[in-house]
Design a protein around this nucleic acid. Structure first.
Lengths: 151, 151
DNA sequence: ATTTGAGAGTACAAAAAATAGACTCACTCG
DNA sequence: CGAGTGAGTCTATTTTTTGTACTCTCAAAT
């Protein structure tokens, strides 16, 4: 199975992976969420080749996660901006950041500061149940499409 | 930059990607969360080569996300089980599933059923702010380590 | 006792993708 | 005019990924 075959898969996780299932893609998205929008800035922060940045940005634009916005016409120049789809990936990224901070802590790194615009405070993302509002603990979820699950 | 260099990176997202930043790895994790635990079962569900399954399982065990548990001694056979680290990735996977259902819907697929053991109901995962308890809308987060952010 | 089959891999070579680093192109600024 | 900048593209090399076939250990069936 190749990359592009994944997106027709029955599983929504697989279809999401078809879009963001690559480390560079995820790191580009991370930078977008932090306000980076230009080619050379991505290159400078990522530490990977320009070819790779070019390829990933093009894929993300094609997938509708990013869009380009011209800021200068003559040598055509544009910013890469998140679409609604892209902003909605922010939650996934936040949880990934939290996992990394918890299980792969790094000495000398101050925890990442996130501020919730609605209340103005630095916060951590918490996953709660839409029905009872309580946090969803790891291991407290059962899936209906298979035998009793461990997740 | 190569795979294994990522895990020493300063960014917690990058360190997480060093562990789960590969489509097959994520799909294996997804299956683990749904209760799959044996080599051939992963092979059957994934549609990728046995080599790939073998490699990814070994990486996950080495990373401490999965562990093996013998269920038979003589031809040594074991289950692959999630560790606490692995179960904690469940949140990331749930949000990825939700993104896929929202933005890459597929006709004829019933939405994935998840049940919250604590309250017994089918639910959707919601990301809330640890400080005010309100949902964190896409685009309502500011990051402190860069200029004003779009995320 | 021999054959068949399951489970869990390995080995190996072919094919595909990713990478670094240099190069290009179209301007703009001094 | 020459240097600089932003955004790529080209190419050859390296790495990964993949498929297929093979191995190994045992249990069950014949």
């Amino acid at each position: 199975m190749r990359w592009d075959e994944l997106d027709t898969d029955n599983c929504p996780v697989a279809r999401t992976m078809a879009v963001m299932g690559d480390r560079w893609t995820v790191l580009i998205l991370r930078d977008c969420l932090r306000g980076v929008s230009r080619f050379d800035d991505f290159c400078a922060r990522l530490g990977c080749s320009r070819t790779t940045v070019s390829d990933r940005l093009a894929r993300l634009v094609e997938a509708g996660v990013l869009e380009t916005e011209a800021y200068q016409a003559h040598p055509p120049r544009h910013d890469y901006r998140l679409t609604a789809q892209g902003r909605d990936l922010g939650g996934v990224l936040m949880l990934m950041a939290r996992w990394g901070e918890t299980w792969r802590p790094k000495a000398g790194t101050r925890p990442l500061q996130r501020r919730h615009r609605a209340c103005g405070r630095a916060f951590q993302p918490i996953l709660v149940c839409s029905e009872c509002g309580e946090p969803v603990a790891p291991g407290s979820v059962e899936y209906g499409d298979t035998a009793a699950a461990a997740g």
